[in-house]
């Protein structure tokens, strides 16, 4: 589903040059739930942004769903992100001035040919999936952290993407709420077959996924299958 070949990412600022990723070769098969771990600053977010076409690698190639990304034309990348990828962030990134329903609808605004009623119907379905049907008219600041992250998940899945990229989705949550989020993601992966790449600091969460890749200083240091995934 996602193939990174010889990815290198260098951040060039006035004073220093940071090598955020170096010689990364990673293949994520369709339907896999992959977790990524590593110390802070080792390049995990950069990796996810590269997979999600939010960031352009300094060198190397990205392949999404069999399509090698050769053009970096802004409009085309935006289109691929919209169609194929759902994002979940540690800090939720909800728009505070929009209701829960409107937040969830956002990705569909950037897709042509979807009517307002269709958007709202699909948003309600997505919210149902994360157990927030009763909160459609609420605003983000009226929700708990766990509920906010569930809204963010509903937003990520409304466009029915093949890939979900989650950057520390449980990082701001307590273990009970984290558990809830994790269960929703597992469900998405198993029932819908969505390919998920999740960055986490929580070893327990990582062990619930199918495969764990560890990073250190911008490089992959280990890559292991987690054997009891099927039994979770």
């Amino acid at each position: 589903m996602i193939t990174l070949s010889n990815i290198e990412k260098v951040y060039q600022t006035k004073t220093i040059e940071t090598v955020a990723l170096q010689n990364v070769n990673l293949h994520v098969p369709k339907g896999e739930f992959l977790s990524i771990m590593g110390p802070s600053g080792c390049g995990k977010s950069t990796l996810l942004n590269t997979m999600g076409l939010l960031d352009i690698p300094t060198s190397g190639t990205v392949e999404i769903d069999g399509q090698v990304i050769r053009t970096y034309k802004d409009k085309e990348l935006a289109h691929i992100r919209n169609e194929k990828i759902g994002f979940i962030f540690q800090s939720y990134h909800l728009v505070n001035d929009l209701s829960v329903l409107d937040n969830v609808e956002l990705p569909l605004l950037y897709r042509s040919g979807i009517s307002a009623s269709e958007r709202s119907k699909r948003a309600k379905l997505a919210l149902e999936k994360v157990g927030l049907s009763a909160r459609t008219k609420h605003y983000p600041n009226q929700l708990s952290g766990g509920q906010r992250q569930r809204v963010a998940i509903a937003r990520a899945l409304i466009g029915q993407p093949q890939i979900i990229l989650a950057d520390e989705p449980t990082g701001n949550l307590d273990s009970v709420m984290g558990e809830e989020i994790m269960n929703i993601l597992l469900d998405l992966n198993k029932v819908d077959g969505t390919t998920i790449v999740m960055v986490t600091h929580d070893e327990g969460m990582a062990l619930k996924t199918e495969r764990l890749v560890r990073f250190f200083d911008g490089q992959q240091v280990s890559d292991s299958k987690i054997f009891d995934y099927a039994n979770v």
Binding site: G52, L54, D74, K75, L77, A78, H79, R81, N82, E83, F87, F89, S91, H93, V95, L106, P107, Y110, R111, R155, G159
Partner: peptide, 16 residues
């Protein structure tokens, strides 16, 4: 900024 970044991630191009 965060809203702009988010919209871009969700599929908004720079021109949108």
């Amino acid at each position: 900024h965060s809203e702009i970044g988010l919209r871009r991630a969700l599929g908004a191009s720079a021109s949108s």
